[in-house]
Design a protein around this nucleic acid. Structure first.
Length: 597
DNA sequence: GTAGGGTTAG
């Protein structure tokens, strides 16, 4: 019976005598609290009502709506199994609760029991089970459940279909996800969010933004979940303008900045080159958790502000929050990028001793990176032998290799590169690195051999590109690009710039150029690296006070790094480059990475 | 007779 919210409501309710049994009343009084519920349960057993389905159902649903913990889960499971003849209602309550509280395997196994017992799942049941399949990445089961839902006639059910969109997106089947999404009759904000997040999580940030635009065209208002995915997309592509728009939107609409949204803002600002703005958001957040602190520390780390990362870490410890393994990845990588060897060693010991955390490959890679960048190559190799028992991953060898190039250790470099080829024979970047090393010592026979190997294995070099945003328009350049409509001016401007920096003492590092070219050609090839085109375009089209911000999809090469230092000097401009590893702030001939990169 | 669903951060 539905009661109208009239003043008589209280009177009606009070006047109606209870039709429940005393035991049922006791359950209601106990509420969603485990201990009192278990006491009533004991009484149910004592009076011999322990096989009464209605009582056990109420007991179970109350227990499931109490705070979810391992003990609740175990209790609920045992309770369910004690019911002699569970009905569809009991099954779906249990399945929904399991899916909701992080026990997807239970949800699926009870879905199977339910089917075996001859009950047809409802749309509620399907939604929960599909979510469970998505969480477990159980792609085969998910597809079977999907076909069953079609048989049961839920092809147009918004809830079931949205859950399926999430499921297919998590299984990287974005085409299917999109098809289902397009067929949802009334797309709610949750459906849009699922699709946008799906693209974002599969690395298709641009597609996520495009879908967001479609959402706006469809007249659907974004909520904080939409904005979180959008901010992630901005962080990936490095589109500061859209990120800033999100911030303005939040302020304009007076949306509450919850922990997740605030953390996303911090991440976006840091990844788009604005650590100070990230810090401002951090300082203004009413509530912060470990993810928030870690995001801020890693933001400092990628800008080379290791000391600030450490300070924040100390503050966090004082606030009583416990760091986890991701926090230590942030700290160690901050130390590696800032050359803070002592602090890094200390943190590595502390994570094991003070927090009982077991170092994972990521932590070990940070340590090797840190030691080898600092020129402590012997110690780095000892770390691999002892701490890693000689089993180094591709990341670790890449770190060693990078350091070898920096510190001109050709013997070790060759060894590291060969290891890399053995571990990841399908990664073209390793071949290019190794051949560059051979080229730099004049071993052209080896260079040729590696080139042929690449051709045999049909490996293509990953294509590098750089982008720069000017007046909210993103300009993308590839090496030797001639597609920009101002190409002629850009190249002319770049030529002038290169002449000026040569006068100032710049020497081209031809080791960074393509290995198959002759010396003079290499210098020309270097000159047209995508980031150089982008920087020339940026300087010529913006005013003196504008900071030039460039985004590069690959690691910046040594020659460009050196050239940019000189460019910042002769043009008296501040230049910020975000490559796939970190930020470089160039100013007055120096880089914030102190040439640790 | 009973309750229950899909989306988000390092």
């Amino acid at each position: 019976m539905k009661l109208s919210p009239s003043p008589a409501r209280g009177i009606v309710a009070a006047a109606r005598p209870s039709t429940h049994s005393p035991t049922y009343e006791a359950l209601l009084r106990a509420g969603p609290r485990l201990r009192p519920l278990q006491q009533v349960h004991a009484r149910i057993v004592v009076v011999g009502l322990h096989r009464t389905r209605s009582l056990l159902t109420k007991l179970l649903t109350l227990a499931l709506s109490s705070s979810s913990s391992a003990s609740v889960a175990a209790y609920a499971r045992a309770l369910f199994l004690s019911v002699p003849d569970p009905d569809a209602f009991l099954f779906s309550s249990f399945i929904a609760a399991a899916a909701r509280s992080g026990r997807p395997a239970d949800a699926i196994s009870f879905y199977r029991r339910m089917s075996a017992a001859g009950f047809a799942p409802s749309n509620y049941t399907f939604t929960s089970v599909v979510k469970a399949c998505a969480d477990l990445a159980a792609s085969r089961t998910g597809r079977v459940v999907h076909s069953r839902s079609l048989v049961e006639g839920f092809e147009s059910d918004g809830f079931v279909q949205t859950a399926l969109v999430v499921f297919y997106a998590k299984s990287a089947n974005l085409h299917i996800a999109r098809k289902l999404f397009d067929r949802i009759p009334k797309r709610t904000v949750v459906a849009w969010n699922a699709m946008i997040a799906g693209y974002e999580q599969n690395g298709l940030a641009e597609e996520a933004v495009v879908t967001f635009r479609k959402m706006q065209e469809a007249g659907e208002e974004p909520d904080s979940t939409t904005l979180v995915s959008l901010l992630s997309a901005c962080s990936h592509i490095g589109t500061f303008n859209l990120g800033q728009w999100v911030n303005d939107y939040i302020e304009h609409k007076g949306l509450k900045v919850n922990v997740v949204l605030g953390t996303s803002l911090i991440h976006m600002y840091a990844r788009c080159g604005h650590v100070e703005k990230a810090r401002k958001v951090f300082d203004e957040m009413p509530e912060r958790n470990i993810v928030t602190w870690t995001a801020m520390m890693s933001g400092y780390g990628m800008h080379g502000h290791g000391q600030q990362a450490i300070e924040l870490f100390q503050q966090m410890r004082l606030s009583g929050l416990l760091p986890n393994d991701v926090t230590f990845v942030a700290i160690l990588s901050a130390c590696a990028h800032a050359g803070l060897i002592c602090e890094g060693r200390e943190a590595f010991v502390s994570m094991k001793l003070d927090y009982g955390l077991v170092p994972r490959v990521e932590h070990q890679a940070c340590m090797v990176d840190m030691l080898s960048r600092a020129g402590l190559l012997d110690e780095a190799m000892r770390f691999i032998r002892i701490d890693m028992e000689g089993k180094a991953s591709a990341e670790v060898w890449t770190a060693i290799l990078g350091a070898c190039k920096m510190h001109k250790n050709l013997r070790l470099a060759t060894m590291a590169a060969e290891q890399l080829l053995a571990i990841e024979p399908e990664n073209p970047a390793h071949y290019v690195l190794l051949s560059n090393i051979y080229a730099s010592v004049g071993r052209m026979d080896q260079v040729e051999k590696i080139r042929n190997l690449m051709i045999d294995r049909q490996l293509m070099k990953q294509i590098g590109y750089s982008s720069i945003e000017i007046d909210e328009v993103s300009h993308v350049f590839r090496m030797g690009d001639a597609s920009h409509r101002q190409t002629m001016e850009i190249y002319r401007y770049l030529d002038g710039l290169m002449d000026k920096i040569k006068e100032a003492g710049y020497l081209p590092e031809t080791g960074s150029a393509l290995h198959e070219l002759e010396e003079e050609e290499r210098e020309v090839a270097l000159r047209f690296h995508s980031e150089k085109l982008a920087v020339a375009f940026g300087i010529m089209t913006t005013s003196q006070s504008t900071i030039i911000k460039i985004f590069k999809n690959l690691r910046m090469c040594g020659d460009c790094h050196s050239a940019f230092k000189f460019i910042s000097l002769v043009s008296r401009r501040a230049i910020v480059v975000r490559d796939n590893r970190r930020f470089h702030h160039f100013e007055q001939g120096l880089c914030s990475c102190q040439d640790y990169w």
